[in-house]
Nucleic acid binder design. Structure first.
Lengths: 186, 186
DNA sequence: ACGGTCATGTAAAGTGTTACATGATTAC
DNA sequence: GTAATCATGTAACACTTTACATGACCGT
């Protein structure tokens, strides 16, 4: 599922500008999807061209002019069709785990730094999740509740695991970094 | 961190062919990094060109000729440097969670199907993790243990969360899909 | 004044995915 | 015999990331 389709989905919930949509990615979608302006603005232009959304430009004396997009009936149907066809994949790409995997090739100091940084990042994500859940305004939909709880549950598991197992990599007393053992193919 | 660097890392542990490296991505790295042949083979060619690895081609009467790569001292140092400089990011891209987020726009049947599929996928990943841990041959390194345990811990959390919370989205009694409520910007 | 937020957009570069093309060997 | 696994590689395509370019408004 690409950014274009996600934008369409967000617009099925509420009218929004590109900037609003970016905010949505950073809050509601933060723990399972990322998108930058460089993906969002072209996506909105394409959606507009194909008639899946319409665009009202607010007149402002300044240059840019805030553009508020609204989904059309065709757009809504297209998104519902996309939901029917999308494979429910789930992919992780973790440089953090790569570093842990190669712990033997890293200094203890660097390992500690990386683990602390990751632990801190997890705490920040908890805070962000709290802010999202307790924002006032609309109550959370069932989907939002499920997804928010999911993120929280995995965050909790990650925090606990790191706390209890960081010693596995930190206490790894290394010999010589340049001659650490290599396996020979059988 | 790109596929090229990861290939270099894998080669710091053991000599391998492109095919072997693909296997490594599918087993040891499966829950935190993915790479296909279309990334791996060009990466190995580039590593070879820049002198970070050498290549022994096994002569075979057939055409392809298995190529076994070996890291050079320069390559080893380059990888260790990469480990020092790599930011410990951790990104998820989950179409599954996107679907859950938009549960209101999906039929209960489709939601059940998606949840069952995800649950099954998680079970498969547990099986794969077991196979990886209990393979004979080399015992797991500290890094491998940490990463394998991490994957397992998060898998467990995901399984439990889905079991206990799928009702949130499944029991969402929908009215009319085409006119479900939309929020208006404040 | 200055920093943060609001606001839009383009272009190039980087990276990965998919499909294609080929063929031997091994296990059932 | 036939399917799976072993084995390499290219080319086109899709998509995202990053850097650039611009500027108003609001709070302190």
């Amino acid at each position: 599922m690409d950014v274009k389709t996600l934008c369409l989905g967000i617009l099925c919930r509420q009218d929004a500008s590109g900037y609003d949509i970016k905010k949505h990615f950073e809050t509601a979608f933060s723990h399972f999807f990322a998108a930058g302006f460089g993906s969002i603005y072209p996506a909105l232009a394409e959606l507009s061209d194909s008639g899946l959304v319409t665009c009202d430009e607010e007149c402002r004396h300044g240059k840019p002019g805030r553009k508020v997009y609204r989904v059309t009936e065709a757009g809504r149907q297209a998104f519902i069709a996309a939901l029917r066809e999308t494979e429910p994949r789930h992919k992780v790409r973790s440089e953090f785990l790569v570093l842990m995997y190669f712990a033997e090739l890293m200094s203890t100091d660097r390992l500690r730094e990386v683990l602390d940084q990751r632990a801190q990042e997890i705490e920040n994500l908890f805070t962000k999740a709290d802010e999202f859940d307790h924002r006032f305004g609309d109550p959370l939909s069932a989907g939002e509740q499920f997804v928010s709880g999911y993120g929280r549950a995995l965050l909790k598991a990650a925090r606990e695991y790191i706390r209890e197992n960081r010693h596995l990599v930190e206490n790894d007393h290394k010999q010589n970094l340049t001659t650490s053992p290599r396996r020979i193919r059988a």
